[in-house]
Design a protein around this nucleic acid. Structure first.
Lengths: 199, 199
DNA sequence: TTATTTTTGTATCAGGCACTACACAATCCT
DNA sequence: AGGATTGTGTAGTGCCTGATACAAAAATAA
């Protein structure tokens, strides 16, 4: 009976750690963006040659897509906690924006990789990949908001995404986490006021 | 006595209208961004050949800088009106964000050329040019805010710039002017609440 | 006319980009 | 051992980028 081991290894073994390389690539893409990071930069940083790179990751674009999904797992905001059922919507928005403020300047002034990649990426395919991930996030947030306040779900998710973009941009401009938190709180207060008028 | 005419023309006259070309280049840079717009794209759109392009504009980078300044003149927000002396700061912020909402989706989903160019531009020199213009705008706004409320000038200008970035990103994502205005009003309300707590 | 200056079109340039052909090396399976 | 399979290093592919060399053309100045 054949061994059902996941890493069915036949042939010459890979000389580098693929996951480690993926983590490094994530940091590089996050810091420099898709266009400004060349395959030559990557191979040099990873200490490998182009054929090894393409054997492991297929192409720059596929690596980017894989990195985007990894980023969501490692750096994704805890939407479920922020918008847990039963949470008053204003509190949920405040929490979520606070999470973003905490995250976007962590480990350097890089903002959100998905949001930054969704715009300003010259390569159309890469931009589309990032846009797709951003839309998925928006949809997930909207889904959670609907449970809390179906009537305001659209405007709420729009406002959250806009605030994310503003916070991400500010973070990339060097704003401190402390100051980002203040910005997030102010923005959240605005949505709170909006709901009060409405109800 | 020599003619002091500004257009002292000697030699073969230019076969195209430089200002017109500048306006076209502005639209193109605004729509596609610095990196995604090649010199070949430009020369083709302008109906000229590379040597004519370089004779008129020196380089892609210098044209971009010229376009950025032209953009500020043609599409710049009326900060002086929004933040005129005597205006209550919350009203000024609301006006300014409203202006941005009105402007960012005008003529297509392009957002603010300066803000979008300041990030996400792979070419470091071009990114620096856009960043410099954005910093100049921030400084100008802060200067006007100081007159209205010196104590809150820093946090206010930070919040305005963050909101601009959020609005610009949303506009580029296709948000309508109508919806952008709602977003701007909500964001402005947040700053209003912040000031009320503080005073 | 003749000289000078500037623009124009043709045909490139060198350099960086993502990516690969090829032969060899290193492992597993029989 | 021998065959199959997979990764690696050297070297290079074609393509697109921003930018030019060059000579002819079109204007002014003397």
């Amino acid at each position: 009976m054949p061994d059902t081991k996941i890493t069915a290894k036949r042939g010459r073994p890979r000389a580098f750690d693929r996951d480690e390389a993926l983590a490094k690539a994530q940091l590089l893409f996050h810091a420099k963006g898709y266009d400004a990071l060349s395959v030559a930069d990557l191979t040099q940083a990873l200490g490998i040659n182009p054929p090894s790179f393409y054997a492991a990751f297929k192409s720059k674009l596929e690596l980017y897509d894989e990195v985007l999904r990894r980023y969501e797992k490692t750096n994704g905001l805890d939407v479920d906690t922020a918008l847990a059922p039963g949470t008053p919507l204003p509190d949920g928005v405040a929490k979520l924006l606070r999470y973003a403020a905490d995250a976007y300047a962590r480990g350097g002034p890089c903002g959100c990789m998905v949001i930054e990649g969704a715009r300003g990426t010259a390569d159309p395919q890469a931009g589309q990949k990032a846009c797709a991930r951003m839309e998925a996030s928006r949809a997930y947030i909207r889904e959670k908001v609907v449970v809390l306040d179906a009537k305001n779900a659209e405007i709420c998710s729009d406002y959250i995404m806009m605030s994310f973009a503003g916070l991400s941009a500010s973070a990339r401009n060097g704003m401190s986490t402390e100051r980002l938190r203040v910005m997030a709180a102010i923005a959240a207060d605005g949505f709170s006021s909006y709901l009060e008028k409405d109800v």
